[in-house]
Computed example of a mutant assay.
Amino acid sequence: MLNSLNLDQLRVFVAINDHGSFSAAARQLHRAQSAVSNAIVNLETALGTTLFDRSGWKPQLTDHGYSLLVDAREVLARADQFKARALRLTQGLEAELSVVLDVMFPTVQLVDLVARFQQTFPGVVLRLCTEVLGGVPERVLTGEYDLGVQGSLPDIAPGLTSHILPEIAIVPVAAASHPLMGQRKISNDMLREYTQIVLTDHSGRTAGRTFSVYSNRQILTADLGSKYAMLRAGLGWGFMPRSFVEEDLGAARLIELDLAERQPRNQSMPLFLIRRDSDPLGPAGRWVVDTLTQAVTISKDLP
C-alpha cells in the first residue's frame, strides 16, 4: 500500500498538526474539509497505522503519528529542495562548481569565500582542491576544474582568461633554533649553505625552472602543510605566506630572516583567477569571479 503514498497527503498531515484541526488545515490549504479528511484516511491506510486520535474535540497525534511527523517534515523539505534545485538548473545554475587553488591562497579568505558561497548558492556543490605551481592551470585546462586561483607560477597559459587578484605577502622564515636566527643582512652566498625547504611542481609545466630557490641543499615538497611542519621543526628555512605564519612570528616559534637581497618576486606573490576561454561560466562561477576580483577594485579605490 505504500506505493499509494504521495506528497500531498504528507502536506495535509503536517498542516493538520500545525493548524490544530481538520477544518483549519482545510482553510490553510484552500481545500474542502472532506478532501482533507479523505487524504488522511488514505495516508493512514497506506501506512497501516493511525496518525491522529479523533476521539476528542481536537485531533491529537498518536505515538506513531508523532514519530512519523518528523519524517514527513524531512521528506517535504527535501522535496522542496529538489524542486528548487531543478528550477535553478533549468535557469542555467550549475549543479556543481569546482575550484582549484594555489597552496599559497590565504586560508582565511578561502573560508570567507566558502561561507558566502553556501549562503548564496545552497543547492550548488562546491568542490575544492589545492595545487602547486603549474598544477593549477593544468587542472583548469584539462577541464577537471572550472576555475583556478593561480599563484607561484607567473605565466598565464594559452587558452586561459585571467583576472588579477590582490598579491599576498611572502616572508623568509626559519625556526628560532635555526643557525640563521639573529643573523643580519644574510647574503645569498650564506643562504646557499643551509637547507631550503621548497615547494615543487609535479605537473611538468615548470620543468627546468625554479622560483626563489637559493640553496644548493633542498628539501622538496608539494604540500604547504608539510613545509610548514618542517620549518617549525628546524629542518631548513623557506618562504611562506605571511598570513600562514603570522601567529608563529608573533610567538617567536618562527623568525623572519633578514635577507640582504630580496627581489620583488620573494616579497609578494601575484595571484590570478583563471578560467578556460572556451567555456562560459554559470551564475555561481560568475559570482566567484566577481567576489574575488571585487577585492582588487576596493583596494584601488582606497586612498
Results as ranks from 00 to 15, higher is better:
residue 35 A to G: 08
residue 93 L to H: 15
residue 23 S to V: 12
residue 29 L to E: 01
residue 99 V to E: 05
residue 28 Q to T: 15
residue 91 Q to V: 00
residue 47 L to N: 12
residue 13 F to K: 00
residue 139 R to A: 10
residue 34 S to I: 11
residue 108 V to R: 13
residue 82 F to K: 07
residue 5 L to I: 08
residue 93 L to Q: 12
residue 75 V to K: 07
residue 21 S to M: 10
residue 100 V to P: 05
residue 123 G to T: 13
residue 86 A to T: 12
residue 69 L to Q: 03
residue 71 D to F: 15
residue 15 A to L: 04
residue 33 Q to G: 07
residue 138 E to V: 04
residue 119 Q to V: 11
residue 17 N to T: 10
residue 129 C to G: 09
residue 5 L to P: 01
residue 111 V to K: 15
residue 99 V to D: 03
residue 126 L to P: 02
residue 109 Q to A: 14
residue 21 S to K: 06
residue 61 L to P: 04
residue 35 A to I: 08
residue 76 L to S: 00
residue 128 L to P: 08
residue 53 D to P: 05
residue 54 R to W: 03
residue 57 W to D: 15
residue 41 V to M: 12
residue 125 V to M: 10
residue 125 V to R: 14
residue 65 G to C: 04
residue 106 P to V: 04
residue 68 L to I: 07
residue 14 V to G: 04
residue 108 V to W: 15
residue 107 T to D: 10
residue 64 H to Y: 14
residue 109 Q to D: 13
residue 7 L to C: 08
residue 142 T to S: 15
residue 36 V to N: 03
residue 130 T to I: 10
residue 117 F to G: 03
residue 99 V to N: 02
residue 101 L to R: 01
residue 138 E to T: 11
residue 118 Q to G: 06
residue 93 L to F: 14
residue 68 L to C: 04
residue 42 N to D: 06
residue 110 L to Q: 13
residue 50 T to N: 09
residue 81 Q to G: 10
residue 14 V to I: 15
